[in-house]
């Protein structure tokens, strides 16, 4: 079977690639495009390590077929910092040690950013339920939740 040609936008850049019809976006990002910031923890939509946004919506890139992103906009962890300027969430995660091994971190950050764009003033419960799709085995979530809440407060203060 010949490959499909897909034109899309990743982190604001136009991108073209060839893929099989049944390849996931995660597979293309990691193995075709070299964007290995999105991680594969399960490949079945259960861990959130592969989180990206698709036209602004948070999705598991392991569950989206690559041909489906034709003509659409996706953002990944690689698009979160602006140049050498970290996103406030990234900075806060460092300051508050919201990561240990760091393998869940790209997915958690992408998910948390999507939350704050929808809800700039989330409660602890909001954060916990929103991030319930992102498994972290190291931190017990405590410092992650605190970092997200504190970033939200900072960003509200700055706005």
């Amino acid at each position: 079977m010949s490959k499909l040609h897909v034109t899309t936008s990743i982190n604001g850049e136009p991108v073209e690639f060839l893929c099989e019809a049944d390849q996931s976006v995660l597979d293309v990002l990691r193995n075709t495009l070299g964007l290995t910031g999105s991680k594969e923890g399960c490949g079945t939509g259960d861990c959130g390590a592969c989180s990206i946004t698709l036209d602004g919506r948070l999705v598991c890139s392991c569950l989206v077929l690559a041909p489906e992103i034709e003509g659409r906009q996706i953002t990944t962890i690689e698009g979160m910092a602006q140049g050498d300027h970290l996103h406030p969430l990234q900075q806060k995660f460092l300051e508050m040690a919201a990561l240990q091994c760091g393998i869940c971190t790209p997915g958690v950050l992408v998910a948390a950013k999507a939350l704050l764009e929808r809800n700039p003033d989330p409660s602890e419960t909001d954060v916990r339920y929103w991030l319930a799709g992102n498994l972290c085995r190291c931190t017990g979530y405590d410092k992650i939740v605190r970092a997200v809440l504190e970033t939200a407060a900072d960003m509200r203060g700055a706005a």
Partner: peptide, 23 residues
């Protein structure tokens, strides 16, 4: 002191190389 970890920036930007990231 609660200093920022030396490997932190790589880990929040997706650049840190984990086992499956190498080719």
């Amino acid at each position: 002191r609660r200093t920022i970890r030396p490997d932190g920036a790589d880990k929040v930007t997706g650049r840190a190389g984990y086992a499956a990231d190498n080719s």
